[in-house]
Amino acid sequence: MVETTKLIHEYLRHSKKFPHVYCPGCGHGIVLGSIIRSVHHLGLSKDEVVLIAGIGCSGRMAVYVDFNTIHTTHGRALTFATGVKLANPKLKVIVVMGDGDALSIGGNHFIHAARRNIGVTALVLNNNIYGMTGGQSSSTTPENSYSTTTPYGHLERDFDVVNLALGCGANFVSRTTALHAQLMDKLLTKAIENPGFNVVEVLTPCFTQYGRKNKFKNVVEMYSWYRKNTIKVEKYKELPEEKRAGKIPIGVFSDKQEPGFEEKYGQLREKLRSKK
C-alpha cells in the first residue's frame, strides 16, 4: 500500500498550516492517515463523512481534514455524534477521542453509546495520559507509572478499553497500535462500514508527556515497546495463562452486525406509519 501520501494530501485542508501541531513521533498523525485511507478505500465522499472529535490532542485532528468536522466539548463527542447519526442516518460518523475524553470525563457516554448501539465509529486514541493539559494521569494510565499528578507512582488501576466495550455490548470491538498501520486501516475500514457501535482502540505513544516520565529514551523506543509487547489476539488466545502476562492482544475481539439504534428507530417509524 504505497503511494498513499499524495492521496492523504488531497483530503487535508489546504488552508491549514502543516506540519500539524502534534509532537514528533506522535501516533495521532498516523491515525489521521489511516482514517483518510479507510474513507477513500470505502469510496465515501467527503460530504457524507462527519468527523467528530472531543477535547485534547485528539480533538485537534478534526480541524485538519476536509470532512464535515465538529470539535466538541471534553468527553461529549459521542453525544453530538448520537444526535447527528439519529438526525441523518445516511452520514458516516467517525468519533475521535482520547483516553481521558472517552473513558474519564466521557465514560458514561461511552458505555451508553455502546449499549444503545448507535451507528458510529468510536476511535479511542489511547496514549495513557492527558497530553494537551500537560501530562496528568488518566483512566488508562497504568498502575505504578508516573505523571504530573502521580509523581510518586499511580495507585489506581487502569481501564481496559476493549473489555469495557465488550461488556457494554458494542458490535465491533478491536485494538491496534500506531505501529500497526495496516491493521489499523483494516479495522477502521471494517468499523466505518459495520452497523451499530464500533470501537477501535489505538495505542499511540505520547513521548512528551508519558514516555519521558516513564523511562523511555525516545519515541522510537515506545514504538519498539509496542512491537515487542503486542500479540495478535488469535495467538494470544492460544497462549497458556502464565505466558499472557504483560502481553497486549491486538486485532478483532467482537464482530457483530446487529442493527444500529438509528436503524431500529427507523423501523419503529415505519411500523407506526403502516398502522395508520
Binding site: I70, T73, T79, F80, T82, G83, V84, H109, Y265
Partner: peptide
Amino acid sequence: PQLEEGVFVQMEDEIASLGAVIGASLA
C-alpha cells in the same frame, strides 16, 4: 416516532441530551 423523520431519544444524562440536540441541529 409517528412523524416521517421524527426522533426521540432518552439520553444517559442532561449533558448528553443537549449534546445530541446540538448534533441534530447541526444535521
